[in-house]
Design a protein around this nucleic acid. Structure first.
Lengths: 155, 155
DNA sequence: TTGACGCCCATATAGGCCCATGGTATCCCT
DNA sequence: AGGGATACCATGGGCCTATATGGGCGTCAA
């Protein structure tokens, strides 16, 4: 399997380190990532983490913009300034910097969430809350859809 | 990695010096910059710092302006006259001159912000404010885009 | 002579490397 | 099938190096 799947929560130790789930590390190795690129998600208190190809994709997108417009500058700030590299130590751990804590609210535990081509880091309680909201939205959407189909909704 | 990435804040000592983050120094070395060229960002209280290619980019920018207009002359002055070289001492520090302080408002701490091919120096509080504005603009841009998509139907 | 600046050294802390421990799931052998 | 051995993994911690920071001293120029 070469995609990031499932969710796991690990503890931060006294030196501020946390283990990246072994399954995720295997995916990182399989994809040949030498370094992990972390980006603050725009509308959520989470960190998106992936390989350098994530950065490459963003940079290609920026290159399409007029470099002298504000939008290009904004994107560059977001991609280059509001991001960081996460270095895995040889036990597969990363140190949780102030950069990460500030944006996510992470203090003692980290929830790692697989998202296919990348994964996310969350503060566990906030993730639970977010997950509940997502489920509620999906449920509402499905109910709306089955009503439209004139009460025929199966399940 | 050969790109300036992430943000770090360092303190200015009693002699007016501040350490350039080690990661940035590594990029400077990798890019083969012998000297750091610093110029005042056009519309922000920040300093753009990079190699000589940064100067090229600004000149390109000026070339796009109508040469008969005042603005081109202003910009030329700005780039060529109102700029400076930053010398790294052997511990990787630079002196924060009055030139820098006046434009940025920097007093006791400097936030170094990676921008890919160059980096910026900010007064930390001003950077925080600017970052919040950028994120708000990007979020708005994305929401506008997703509205278009839901009207258009494709993804 | 004074002040700015470069060079050198000192030190505390953060971060990386290495190894140890304990828990858990798995496998194997009887 | 049961019980013990084993492999893997999260976690903890010692130690050493790199880095940021502080400060002394000499040099050069105004």
């Amino acid at each position: 399997m070469d995609r990031f799947l499932s969710t796991a929560t690990n503890k931060i130790d006294s030196k501020g380190r946390v283990s990246v789930p072994a399954h995720f590390r295997a995916v990182v190795a399989k994809r040949g990532y030498q370094e992990l690129y972390a980006l603050k998600a725009l509308d959520r208190p989470a960190l998106d983490v992936g390989g350098l190809d994530l950065l490459d994709r963003y940079e290609e997108r920026i290159a399409m913009e007029d470099p002298f417009l504000q939008s290009a500058d904004d994107m560059s700030y977001f991609v280059h300034g509001d991001s960081d590299f996460l270095k895995l130590d040889q036990d597969g751990r990363i140190t949780v910097s102030e950069f990460i804590r500030a944006h996510t609210g992470i203090t003692t535990e980290v929830a790692f969430v697989g998202r296919g081509t990348f994964f996310q880091m969350w503060e566990p309680a906030r993730l639970a809350e977010y997950g509940a909201q997502v489920r509620a939205r999906l449920l509402k959407m499905r109910q709306a859809a089955s009503n439209e189909i004139s009460n025929g909704g199966t399940e």
